[in-house]
Amino acid sequence: MDLRLHTPRKQRIGTREKDVDHEERPSVSQAIDHALQRLESVLTRLEGAVTQRFEAERDPSDLETELAIMGEDRARLAAELDAASARLAEVEATSANVEHRLGQAIDAVEGVLAPSRASR
Results as ranks from 00 to 15, higher is better:
R45S: 05
A105H: 05
E66C: 10
M1D: 08
S95E: 12
D73L: 14
M70W: 10
M1E: 07
V20Y: 08
P8W: 02
M1L: 12
D73E: 06
D21W: 08
M70C: 13
R16P: 01
R58T: 13
I106G: 00
E55Q: 11
E66I: 09
L88K: 03
G111S: 00
A114E: 13
A68K: 04
A68D: 10
N97L: 06
E99M: 02
L63G: 07
A96E: 11
V50D: 13
H100F: 04
A35F: 04
A49H: 14
L77A: 15
D33F: 01
S61D: 15
E99H: 11
A79L: 13
V20W: 05
T51E: 15
A83M: 13
H6D: 07
V98N: 09
V20S: 06
V42C: 03
M1K: 04
T51D: 15
V50E: 14
K18E: 01
R117C: 04
R87Q: 15
R101P: 02
E80N: 13
Q11I: 14
E92F: 07
L39K: 02
E55I: 08
T65G: 08
E99I: 06
I13K: 01
D73T: 06
R74K: 14
A108R: 02
D107N: 08
E57T: 14
R9H: 07
R25P: 00
E64Y: 09
P26S: 02
E99G: 06
T65K: 13
R120I: 06
S29H: 02
D62F: 00
D19S: 02
I69E: 14
H6M: 10
D107I: 00
T94A: 11
R120E: 04
M70Y: 11
V28A: 01
